[in-house]
């Protein structure tokens, strides 16, 4: 089913909207949640919450990129749950590694700064990504949006794992330089 048709079901308050969403994107959303939470049960709960959130915000929203829309909700819910559980005990997950990698990107803080809103920061990152070639852009997003493991990305792109790591290292360095040049403070 096309995304426009599924979104139409939400607008019509048709009960088939969620099963249709699950049929098309359930696997992907579960993968994203699992990579962050490392627990099938927690991942499933986050995905179910994603559907509930989606039901509650469409309408009035009418997302143009439905996959991205859903994935963003799942990511945020998963991060929140991760934080909740992380406070209680150490949980190994890809997220720990991802966050430590992203720490390299944080621009140096200045004395006079105003913290940027997440959405505005996202716009800057999007601009940065558009200036990368397609392959590098895909590798970065697969890693930090889809939370894919290095090994998986390496297999998909036909490179060794160390080459993917090198590529990500250089992209992160460039992103940091870009954010600092733009005067962005996180």
């Amino acid at each position: 089913m096309k995304d426009e048709e599924i979104i139409g079901l939400y607008w019509d308050r048709n009960q088939k909207a969620i099963p249709a969403t699950d049929a098309k994107y359930g696997k992907l959303l579960n993968q994203i949640a699992y990579r962050i939470l490392y627990s099938s049960q927690d991942a499933e709960e986050c995905v179910n919450d994603t559907y509930l959130n989606t039901w509650n915000c469409i309408p009035p929203q009418k997302p143009i990129y439905f996959q991205a829309f859903l994935g963003a909700i799942t990511r945020n819910l998963s991060i929140d749950r991760y934080k909740e559980q992380h406070a209680k005990k150490r949980i190994p997950s890809e997220l720990t590694l991802l966050l430590s990698e992203l720490e390299e990107v944080l621009p140096a803080q200045s004395d006079v700064h105003q913290e940027i809103e997440e959405k505005e920061l996202a716009t800057h990152i999007s601009t940065f990504l558009r200036n990368l070639d397609l392959e590098k852009r895909m590798i970065f997003i697969r890693r930090y949006w889809y939370c894919e493991e290095i090994k998986q990305i390496a297999t998909e792109f036909g490179y060794s794992e160390s080459k993917i790591k090198t590529s990500l290292f250089r992209i992160r360095a460039k992103l940091k330089a870009y954010l600092e040049k733009e005067g962005i403070c996180i």
Binding site: A68, K83, L98, S126, R130, R142, W145, E156, I186
Partner: peptide, 28 residues
């Protein structure tokens, strides 16, 4: 936490970029 902010912000990048990245990788 700053790195978490960055991670969440990445979650909100333009949708077309996300969907493009989700496709099969480009042929070499």
């Amino acid at each position: 936490m700053r790195k978490e902010t960055l991670f969440r912000a990445i979650g909100q990048i333009d949708g077309d970029l996300i969907e493009e990245a989700g496709q099969k990788k480009p042929a070499k």
